[in-house]
Write a protein that binds this DNA or RNA. Sequence first.
DNA 1: AGATATTCCTGGAGGC
DNA 2: TGCCTCCAGGAATATC
Length: 268
Amino acid sequence: MPELPEVETTVRGLARVLQGQRISSVQKRRPDLRRALPQDLGQRLTGARVTGLGRRAKYGLVDTDRGDTLVFHLGMSGYWRVDPHELLKHDHFVMDTEAGRRIVLNDARRFGSLDLVETAELGDWPPFKALGPEPFGLDARELQRRLAGRSAAIKLLLLDQRIVAGLGNIYVCEALYRAGIHPRRAGGSISLDRLKRLVPAIHDVLAEAIEAGGSTLKDFVSPDGELGYFSKAFAVYDREGQPCGRGGTVKRIVQGGRSTFYCPQCQH
DNA sequence: AGATATTCCTGGAGGC
DNA sequence: TGCCTCCAGGAATATC
């Protein structure tokens, strides 16, 4: 599912098609995803030139020369296809460039979003305003400060986008495993020494996933249609009952209504 | 304030 | 074969 590495991979793929290109037309194939698409999306994008692409947390950003940024979130099932032969069920948004390229957003579950925000106002845009720091650039002391006084499980706190922005269920499980930290441990009780193992673990697992082109799981496809392969490298995620690789056996528990995978032998 | 539960939606998997 | 239930994912919202 799209977490930070998949969004990063998607943005890089879209950049190859969109960077510097003029948008010739867009097509809304339904009026809403998670929320309504902007009424004036078509007018504001048509004829605009793409000046840059970027990412904030799990959001992809497409800047235009009109001072607007198209902000997309892939939710749980969203993905872009490039130059598809045909349109499929759940293809909700189509954008064409003057160069004759096409990108199509498919999102069966519609937990994703598409917004058009004035680039200069992005920092004040409500969904961005509360976001914590990017995982890259986060250091152990900063994380310790953000966890201070919190009694909730570290697993849940790392999923909270206000504490760190961009982590999802998969990479939180993997990072905690790598750092040897039990997912139920109270966030505020973790020593600085242990956070100094956790932060690099987060960096490493994300960087490796980006390097691998994002994980596929069930329905992530990179923009050029190639499947990523990082999912083969999961140590614990979706591996209940299987060996963790260091002699332990992966266990599944539920936290906040969602599955956590960890190794009781390796994580304390 | 913090912690927890619920909601949105579809499709795939597994049970009978 | 079909019908049923359960589960996955992210984030906003509601409720304790």
